[in-house]
């Protein structure tokens, strides 16, 4: 089998726990990721599910090197990037993109949409790639002149997606990117991502708590609870025969579009 694009070994992340900071002495540390091992094969779509606060976003930020791991290793394309300094990381950045969970704070409020998408490309907002990216996420090209606060929640989320795909990366980490969208836009975004995976060989890690989306998109799924992986399985197997109680609880909590079924 070919080398995996991402390989994570015994990954641990600790953060200082400011809420229990003593007056003197060191701040106690909170262990948020407690030793994770997994791989993301090239061209695969990995789903990461789990409840609020289980550490999904932290894992994502550590993978794209926004957060410093405490222990363990992260290998990207065979190279160890665990503690790669910023300057050495920069050439790799174009290949590793992240779409953020909170669309409001991840778009610069004082730049126009055009500049937000164009800046990472070192282009101007008139660059055809900008309009193309907006088209991909189903937004009109006129949006380049708007500011983030002039868009609806779902439209903002799609700007974040457009910015990432315009870079043509090898890997995208998508953090809860469709939960603010209606089903039709969700389907559109998922179709787009599927197309990129199929045609361009994009590798995707898809964080979500929406299992119907995961089922549609992912090859494999990791279920997280309080900083640990409690279950890892191919998608079909996970849905047909969930092994862990927590996975079953997540499945049961999905609201079905049917008023006659008790919840």
């Amino acid at each position: 089998m070919a080398e995996a694009l991402f390989r994570v070994e015994a990954l641990r992340v600790e953060l200082p726990d400011m809420t229990r900071k003593p007056l003197f002495g060191p701040v106690p540390r909170l262990e948020i990721l407690k030793g994770l091992d997994f791989e993301i094969p090239r061209g695969a779509v990995l789903g990461i599910v789990g409840g609020s606060g289980s550490g999904k976003t932290t894992l994502g930020r550590t993978l794209v090197r926004l957060m410093e791991p405490t222990a363990g290793r992260i290998l990207f394309d065979g190279a160890d990037i665990t503690h790669l300094p910023d300057a050495a990381m920069r050439p790799l950045r174009q290949r590793i993109q992240m779409i953020f969970q909170d669309p409001m704070s991840s778009l610069n409020p004082r730049l126009t949409i055009g500049r937000i998408i164009a800046a990472p490309l070192n282009a101007t907002s008139r660059d055809p790639r900008v309009a193309e990216a907006l088209g991909h996420v189903g937004l009109p090209a006129e949006f380049v002149h708007r500011y983030p606060h002039e868009l609806s929640g779902g439209q903002r989320q799609r700007i974040g997606i457009a910015r990432a795909i315009a870079m043509r990366p090898d890997f995208i980490l998508a953090d809860e990117i469709v939960s603010g969208l209606d089903v039709s836009s969700q389907a559109q975004v998922l179709n787009l991502l599927e197309g990129l995976v199929r045609d361009l060989g994009l590798t995707l890690a898809f964080i979500s708590h929406d299992l119907s989306v995961i089922r549609r998109l992912c090859d494999r799924v990791i279920v997280m609870q309080t900083g640990r992986i409690v279950e890892e399985a191919p998608t079909e197997a996970l849905f047909e025969d969930p092994q862990h109680d927590y996975t079953r609880e997540l499945l049961d909590a999905i609201p079905t579009p049917d008023p006659t079924v008790r919840w």
Partner: peptide
């Protein structure tokens, strides 16, 4: 501390550029 700054970092902006442009 806002995510747009992190996103500039993911986009590969240098630190001075992030400071001036974002």
């Amino acid at each position: 501390q806002m995510d747009y700054v992190h996103s500039a970092r993911v986009a590969g902006f240098s630190r001075p550029r992030t400071l001036m442009a974002e």
